[in-house]
Amino acid sequence: MSYEATGKLVAKFDIVQRTESFKTREFVIEKTEEINGRAITNYLKFQCVQDKTALPDRFAMGEEVKVMFNIKGTKWVKDGRENFITNLDAWRMESMKGGAAGSTGAENTQFNNIPPQDVVDDLPF
């Protein structure tokens, strides 16, 4: 299942080479919401893996972005004790300025490029 969150980019960390063939990178967005008349600020830390580690490079610090991500959880046992970690794995980022930076191809489709419904097409189905 995929999720999305919007906020201001406030931190970008270096790429970490975890193994010879696996690398990760983290970044943080600041998300402020008004709840019962109070502004509540949360900081969401995301992880990018492999070819997605360059995603944050396309955005300036302080820029409003939308992040599409999956939630992944891992369990491991150490010294007889169960441990758990949850990651927010980012797989796409967009600027909230109007463009879709960090996306390509069909992901960049604009709804205003879709023809109006009264246009007759010649498809057989």
Rank of each mutant, 00 (worst) to 15 (best):
M1A: 11
K45T: 13
E26N: 12
D122A: 06
N113K: 03
S2Y: 03
R92G: 15
L9R: 04
K66I: 07
M68C: 13
E26M: 00
V16I: 10
D57K: 07
Q47F: 03
A100Q: 09
D89P: 02
N113C: 06
N42I: 01
F69P: 13
K23P: 03
A90F: 04
D79Q: 09
K12E: 05
K66R: 15
K45L: 06
A106V: 09
D14N: 15
T6K: 15
E64G: 01
G37H: 08
I114N: 02
V10F: 07
G80M: 12
D57T: 01
S103A: 12
N36R: 09
V10D: 02
I114M: 04
R18G: 00
P56I: 00
F59M: 14
M96C: 15
K12C: 00
L55A: 01
N113M: 00
I15L: 08
K8G: 00
M1I: 07
K72F: 01
G37A: 06
T109P: 03
P115D: 09
E107I: 00
D14V: 10
V77Y: 12
Q117M: 13
G73K: 03
F22W: 02
K45C: 11
A100D: 09
A60D: 15
P56M: 02
E30C: 00
N70A: 03
F84C: 00
P116D: 07
V120M: 12
I85L: 02
R58V: 05
V65Y: 06
S21Y: 14
L55S: 02
I71D: 04
V120S: 13
F69H: 10
G62E: 11
F13A: 09
E30V: 00
K66C: 10
P116A: 10
F27E: 15
K72T: 08
I15H: 04
I35P: 06
S21T: 13
P116C: 00
I114W: 00
G98M: 09
A90H: 04
R38L: 10
R58C: 08
Y3R: 14
V16M: 08
K75M: 13
N36D: 13
R18E: 12
F111A: 14
A100R: 09
G62V: 06
A90I: 04
V28L: 06
F46A: 12
L44M: 13
D89A: 07
S2E: 12
S2H: 03
K52T: 04
